[in-house]
Every structure is written in structure tokens, then in C-alpha cells.
Design a protein around this nucleic acid. Sequence first.
RNA 1: ACAU
DNA 2: TCATGT
Length: 157
Amino acid sequence: MSKMPVNPPSWRNDTVLPLPNEVKANAWAVDAACSGNPGPMEYQCIDLQTGAQVFHYGPIHGTNNIGEFLAIVHALALMDQKGITDKVIYSDSVNAQLWVNKKQCKTKLERTPQTEQLYQVIARAENWLRTHPITVPIFKWETKKWGEIPADFGRKG
RNA sequence: ACAU
DNA sequence: TCATGT
Ligand SMILES: [Mn+2]
Ligand SMILES: [Mn+2]
């Protein structure tokens, strides 16, 4: 029998999705994907407790950062609509979290007939943010430590 | 440089 | 390798 000290496990395995111990399971994770950037963009949300997809939107022509932004706002609005107050949100996008806190999508995507529909969606999201307080914590998913966020589309490299 |  | 962003 070894006398070596055994470190406590850093990952929990009692959840549907294995999660790092530092990660809250009562949470939704969001992520965006873009086929080309700009290009056909989509985003989705995964419930970390069940692994179920909570919502999916797109594809629609846009950028990675617009998708990351809209995904967070969509999660906030849906939680509000469902009366969910105890969950938190994970996103891997520092940029999107900054935009949400500013309540403004600071994209440089050209505004053309092709992007007009998306700009309308952005306007609705910004309007929602201006008219609702953000009460749910939004946490950075630490990809380098934990691997890809569970909402990732798994299409990179 | 950092994060996508 | 390219693009989106602070
Ligand atoms: Mn992401
Ligand atoms: Mn991803």
C-alpha cells in the first residue's frame, strides 16, 4: 500500500456531463460557431445538469462575436421568462461578456441587405438588455484549464 | 497580449 | 491560414 498523499479529484463524475469541481452544475453553457468569419453563424445553449440542448439559433450570416453575444442575451431572456433565478451562465467569450455588460453589441460587421435581419435581432437583444436588469451571474468558461465548453459545436481542428 |  | 474583438 502506498503512503503517497492522494490529491482530491479535480473533476466530478456524478453529473451527466463530467465537470471540473470549480464549475457550477446549476448552469447553462452557451457557445457560437461560424463557418467562415463572417459567415453562416449559429449558437446554442446546453444545460450542464442534464446535457440537454436548451435552445439553438441559426445559421444566419454573422460573426463569431455577434453569436457569442446573442447567445448570452438569449439565455438571460429565457431564464427571465421561465422565472429561473438560481442558475448561472458560462461563456468562453470575454468579448461577449463585455458587450453584454455594456448592453451594446459593438460589432464592425458591415450593415447590408444581407445582414439587415441579423441587425434587427441585435437591436432586439440590446433593447432587452436596456429594459431588464442582469441578475444572473455570467462566468468565464476557462477553456485552457477545462477543455471546450460543453455548448461547443466541436468543429475546430 | 488576451479571449474567440 | 484567415477573421472577430478588447
Ligand atoms: Mn466560444
Ligand atoms: Mn466553440
